[in-house]
Design a protein around this nucleic acid. Structure first.
Length: 477
RNA sequence: GGCGGCAUAGCCAAGUGGUAAGGCAGAGGUCUGCAAAACCUCUAUUCCUCAGUUCAAAUCUGAGUGCCGCCUCCA
């Protein structure tokens, strides 16, 4: 039952050993809130949400911290463009984040700290770095001296020499080393600013994660995650400043990075402008479909985004939802099968699905492989659901397992829309009447009328299906 | 220039030494007044190319080709 995960730091899969028995402390880099988040960001959120859920399933008490970068150059720039106070803009998109997160069924983090609420903690760390010679102030800016930190580059597997050779950026003359990065930025007039020992300014990008992760998780916490583009420079710099501040103690024990979402094989990014926000995608696709699509590929493989893939995901998810629906309908029917064989087959299938599911997820969270376990179970359920009488006992267990495992991946296979319909008394009564009328037509072999009713309702998004046990209907958008 | 990743059926996608999961699409069949759903059967002698290691390779090694990412803000 051991769980293996790929650690970017060591470039191999390692057995997960928590810092503290039975507990997992993880920090995931959250969004910079200057816009709605896009599908690429969503992949990261969904992947780590899935990881978090699986740890919980395994019995760990998970403390999950995801920050909001609510002050930074892009927010200031965007605020300027929109004629809005940058800090207010940052808050606005924090609120919008939660709307989209809900649609994707992302669990709220244990703590969602904001950069702007942790300035004093950051100043303290920066001061500590200056005191030990790892940081230096120049004209109101403060930089981290990378050549004073022995293992700079250990996460991304490069050396200062490598980077010097490949430097593509104009070097700020005031820096002691070209790769030195900002811990504190002096404010220009009109920019959001906080008082500090070096004058008015704002924190550099990396320092917030150091301050907030140390505050809420403490040194040497278990997992630090993010998109693979964060490995360098963001996480590299976090390691340097944090372990420098901690006098060499380990910052985080496992580093996890998800691969990108691509569009036409190219990285989807705000910089390239080739992105879709989740808000836009939600107009045509339910959040659960987007989620199903995002987890259908292992998190460390690139995933190409297009409409066809989204449609395939929708069909796949519907298959699982249909299976649950069929099982529920079957169990409502009278009687229970005497045939032990069906019970046995279902119980065995449930057991094997769980086993295969766990095996897949234990191997570096292979959600794509875990899907196969769900589909196999659904297939066995479907094959037994038509039996009359119904093997209720085995079916109930199988359905329970399918729902539970689906939930671990963040899918509600009970199909919320359907539940809503069932709670709508008027709709249910009207539909009962319509179904009776159609049933009469069919008894009189008035196929024209029966088909007409079916066609009209289909246009309204209500699908009627005739079965040996009678007709049934469901909402399908 | 430095560092790293990927290449599996029409499409998506698992599989890292033992003889190709799963999904979507497609074909045939069962059921059905028809339709839908579901079920059954079929759909990669083969995993970018070439060479090598091995009893055995999609999996390991080397060379090559193609695509992508990081090195600058980026999930």
């Amino acid at each position: 039952m051991s769980l293996k995960l790929y650690n970017t730091m060591t470039r191999q899969k390692e057995e997960f050993q928590p810092r503290e028995n039975g507990k997992v402390a993880m920090y995931v880099c959250g969004p910079t809130t200057y816009n709605y988040f896009h599908a690429g960001n969503a992949r990261m959120f969904v992947v780590f949400d899935m990881i978090r859920r699986y740890f919980t399933y395994k019995g760990y008490d998970v403390r999950y911290v995801q920050n909001f970068t609510d002050v930074d150059d892009k927010i200031i720039q965007r605020g300027h463009v929109e004629g809005m106070d940058p800090l207010a803009l940052g808050q606005k998109y924090i609120e919008e984040y939660f709307k989209d997160a809900k649609a994707l069924n992302l669990l709220p983090a244990t703590i969602h700290p904001k950069a702007t609420e942790h300035i004093p903690e950051m100043i303290k760390i920066i001061q500590g770095l200056i005191d030990t010679g790892l940081g230096y102030a120049v004209d109101g800016d403060v930089y981290f001296a990378v050549d004073q930190f022995p293992n700079y580059g250990k996460l991304s597997g490069r050396t200062l020499e490598d980077m010097k050779a490949g430097a593509r950026v104009e070097v700020d003359e005031r820096k002691r080393h070209p790769m030195d990065f900002a811990l504190w930025k002096k404010a220009k007039p009109g920019e959001p600013a906080w008082e500090s020992p070096w004058g008015e300014g704002r924190p550099g990008w990396h320092i917030e994660c150091t301050a907030m992760s140390l505050k809420y998780l403490g040194a040497g916490f278990d997992i630090h995650g993010g998109g693979e583009d964060l490995a360098f420079p963001h996480h590299e710099n976090e390691i340097a400043q944090t372990e420098g501040y901690l006098k060499g103690n380990t910052f985080a024990r496992y580093w996890m990075h998800n691969a990108f979402l691509t569009i036409n094989q190219e990285k989807m990014s705000k910089s390239l402008g080739n992105f879709f926000t989740i808000r836009e995608l939600l107009v045509n696709s339910p959040g659960e479909v987007i989620r199903f699509y995002l987890l259908g590929t292992h998190y460390r493989s690139p995933l190409d985004f297009n409409d066809q893939n989204l449609i395939m995901a929708q069909k796949g998810l519907e298959r699982l939802q249909t299976s649950v629906r069929l099982a529920q309908e079957a169990m409502k029917r009278e009687g229970s099968s005497k045939k032990e064989g069906s019970h046995e087959e279902l119980l065995k299938a449930a057991k094997e699905a769980r086993k295969a599911f766990e095996k897949a997820m234990d191997d570096d969270f292979n959600s794509a492989l875990a899907y196969a376990a769900l589909f196999e179970l659904a297939k066995t359920m479907n094959a037994n659901v038509q039996e009359d009488p119904v093997p209720s006992h085995g079916l109930a267990e199988a359905q329970k397992t399918l729902l539970e495992l689906g939930d671990v991946l963040g899918f509600d296979l009970l199909h919320p829309a359907q539940i809503q319909v069932e709670n709508d008394e008027i709709l249910t009564e009207v539909m009962d009447a319509v179904m009776q009328i159609r049933s009469k037509s069919r008894q009189k072999k008035d196929w024209e009328m029966a088909d007409f009713i079916r066609d009209v309702l289909k246009e309204k998004g209500i699908v009627i299906e005739d079965t040996p046990q009678g007709a049934r209907w469901q909402i399908k958008k």
